[in-house]
Design a protein around this nucleic acid. Structure first.
Length: 191
DNA sequence: AGGAAGATCTACT
DNA sequence: GTAGATCTTCCTA
């Protein structure tokens, strides 16, 4: 996907990323996963890493659309893509993918054998795909080792919208449905 | 130095 | 499905 794709409303991008392929190249090895779950983080969002203003650790959120933003929580790397316009701190968190290719390699990195438990969470998928802070600040549409490509079309009626997971402070009721996932997909983190 | 964090694992009702 | 322990990174003081 190109810069234009990310330079749109964050909610639109979060929905449109469902069904796309996440591709990771490690030497000759190629890993592919289909994105099945995302969350939108908006401006003035109590749950956003950008909420307390621009700091050294979150400054990427003010960057160009398509910038990769990585941060750590409880020893897990969270993989986000910056959206909307530059200087508007919004992003989409990739929460889960469905393993498509290189599954045995992912299992090695993750030390699990159950495919359903391989990439069904934000920390799990970064471990499976060997994504860490090295990628922070890079542009996803210019990155050779990590990219997002057009995948399977997901119809509007196949998209479920819900509250975000694990949030302690959130938008008030009515504005807090910012998680999106593919209906009946067994690889989402939670129902 | 102390503590919070957008999670995960395990063990259970 | 929920509850509690655990964990590293990177913050704030």
């Amino acid at each position: 996907m190109n810069k234009k794709f990310y330079e749109r409303s964050t909610i639109e991008v979060a929905k449109d990323l469902l069904g796309k392929y996440l591709i990771r190249k490690i030497g000759r090895v190629k890993l592919i996963g289909k994105i099945v779950e995302t969350e939108a983080y908006l401006i003035n969002d109590p749950a956003s890493r950008a909420y307390k203003g621009k700091k050294n650790y979150n400054k990427e959120m003010w960057g160009k659309p398509g910038t990769i933003f990585i941060y750590n929580v409880h020893n897990n790397w969270m993989f986000n893509i910056v959206t909307n316009k530059e200087n508007i701190p919004e992003a989409v968190l990739i929460r889960a993918v469905q393993p498509i290719k290189g599954i045995d390699v992912m299992m090695e990195y993750r030390k699990v054998k159950d495919i359903k438990n391989l990439t069904n969470g934000p920390g799990k998928l970064t471990k499976s795909f060997l994504i860490d802070k090295r990628f922070n600040g890079k542009l996803i549409y210019k990155c050779k080792e990590l990219k997002i490509k057009d995948g399977e079309k997901v119809k509007e009626e196949e998209i479920v919208r819900s509250k975000r997971i694990g949030i302690t402070k959130d938008f008030p009721e009515g504005k807090n449905l910012l998680r999106f996932y593919i209906k009946n997909n067994p690889f989402v983190s939670r129902k």
